[in-house]
Design a protein around this nucleic acid. Structure first.
Lengths: 198, 198
DNA sequence: CAGATTCCCTAGCGACCGCTATAGAATCTC
DNA sequence: GAGATTCTATAGCGGTCGCTAGGGAATCTG
């Protein structure tokens, strides 16, 4: 006996709705995106949204997971695939210039911009921890290079990781302030000139 | 005949209240700072606030002016005083590391962080224009250096200005994410290594 | 088909938002 | 002193916030 779904089936595509919610949160941020905005964007009513996703906070948490897998993994992929931290950061900055200005979705990085100035400290903290986790990914990759000699042994790994993170965050802001892909690519190339030589 | 003030005099210091409002907006941003927050911080009731400052938006506009004069002028001062754009940017990044982490006030730059993700597009636009005006200040100073030969004639002035702005914005974000003054100073020194040689 | 189940939407809850009508308190001019 | 003026706070306006009760609609099982 196959346990088929009982009762009336959901009349909308949950994954498609999640995508629309992601675009809304990405564009306007967590707090400025109201439930009314979301129900309008997703084309469903509030009770359907709550039945499918729990509440606004849980919906946002799901959105962050989807976003991370689709638009933020390029960083950890580059860190894993490239032979050195420097090559990985170079690839990440160049890809960021492209992703942050892709007209297919809102500008910049959602993890960076969606929970600035929110009254919900929990949400702000969740994204802050994600950003700091990315910094630590950078840092440990830099330390690995220091061990192999790809970076000088006296490198300040934490400071170098912060530098990469700061450039990324700055590029995200610049993209939302109107910078073009070409301008961001020039920023990336400029920033890479400061990377320490082996 | 001196036209003395008629009627009951104001019972609070308007400038001191403006300072307190600045700290509140700086800490939490424009939208997340409610009138109730402000009346609590300033120690006055809502009608007194409205009588003295007009409305929330006008109060914020005044706050931005005060903030600009007290915490953001260091950039234009450096651009005017230092002999080259490079020297000015070096001074600005180093001073930013200090100002952004000064325990006497909230972290980071209010112009950068106070109107991200606001439903009031007017306020967001006002600060965005301020940021872009700063970029243009950088750019024209860079062009001046190109004219005197302090920078190569083929320098991409706009891209270089964007780079300086991106690093500043990134440092502001990093400071709000917990970076120490020393870490930001290291980021500044790292960033300066990418500045073009004459 | 009947009955159970699960979805859908309308309507509206209490809380907070920015803002203000109103009236009393304090200080001026005369 | 009287009266005009301008401050003060209480109390509350209409609107939006996140969220949900309640009842009808659609699809399941048997």
């Amino acid at each position: 006996m196959v346990t088929g779904q009982r009762g009336r089936p959901r009349s909308f595509d949950r994954d498609a709705a999640l995508d629309k919610a992601m675009l809304a949160f990405w564009e306007r941020g967590y707090e400025a995106t109201s439930i009314a905005d979301l129900t309008a964007s997703l084309g469903i009513s509030a009770p359907s949204l709550y039945a499918a996703f729990g509440d606004k906070r849980k919906l946002f948490d799901e959105v962050v997971v989807v976003y991370g897998g689709r638009y933020a993994d390029f960083a950890s992929v580059a860190l894993a695939e490239e032979p050195t931290a420097g090559a990985a950061v170079a690839r990440i900055l160049r890809e960021a210039a492209e992703v942050y200005t892709d007209p297919a979705h809102p500008r910049g990085c959602m993890v960076i911009s969606a929970a600035i100035n929110t009254t919900s400290e929990e949400v702000a903290q969740a994204l802050r921890e994600r950003r700091n986790a990315n910094l630590e990914m950078f840092e440990s990759r830099i330390r690995a290079d220091m061990a192999t000699g790809a970076l000088p042994a006296e490198t300040d790994a934490r400071a170098l990781a912060r530098y990469a993170g700061a450039v990324l965050q700055g590029m995200s802001q610049q993209s939302r302030d109107g910078a073009s892909r070409e301008e961001l690519e020039a920023v990336a190339e400029r920033a890479l000139l400061a990377w320490p030589k082996a």
